[in-house]
């Protein structure tokens, strides 16, 4: 499965990555290589095999509906890039 620069551009946008022109060529090459590697999976017929999403079969554990967390806004926002009045700031979002 060979990718072209347009494919890689689309993937990069989906992942919110900015890829420069020279980088793009290199990524096209290496991503195609990796897809060739993973393409080896097709050597095995997996029809009817149930997919394995988790290593163990244990069911989801449910917790009681109780409040266990305190307000830690100050310590959380000390490490934030930009805050004001207790809010995280990002460039204006236009809807």
């Amino acid at each position: 499965m060979a990718l072209d620069p347009t494919d890689v551009g689309k993937i990069a946008e989906l992942a919110r990555l900015e890829i420069s022109e020279p980088e793009l060529t290199s990524y096209v090459h290496s991503l195609t290589q990796i897809l060739d590697l993973v393409g080896q999976m097709n050597a095995v017929d997996t029809a009817g095999i149930s997919p394995m999403a988790h290593p163990s079969d244990s069911p989801l554990r449910l917790r009681q509906d109780i409040v266990t967390e305190q307000d830690r806004r100050q310590s959380f926002q000390e490490i934030a890039p930009a805050t004001e009045s207790g809010l995280y700031l990002v460039p204006k979002v236009i809807e």
Binding site: M41, V44, P51, A53
Partner: peptide, 13 residues
């Protein structure tokens, strides 16, 4: 890709 890999994972396990 993803589903195929999960199935293969089952076979490996």
């Amino acid at each position: 890709y993803y589903l195929k890999a999960q199935q293969l994972r089952r076979l490996i396990a």
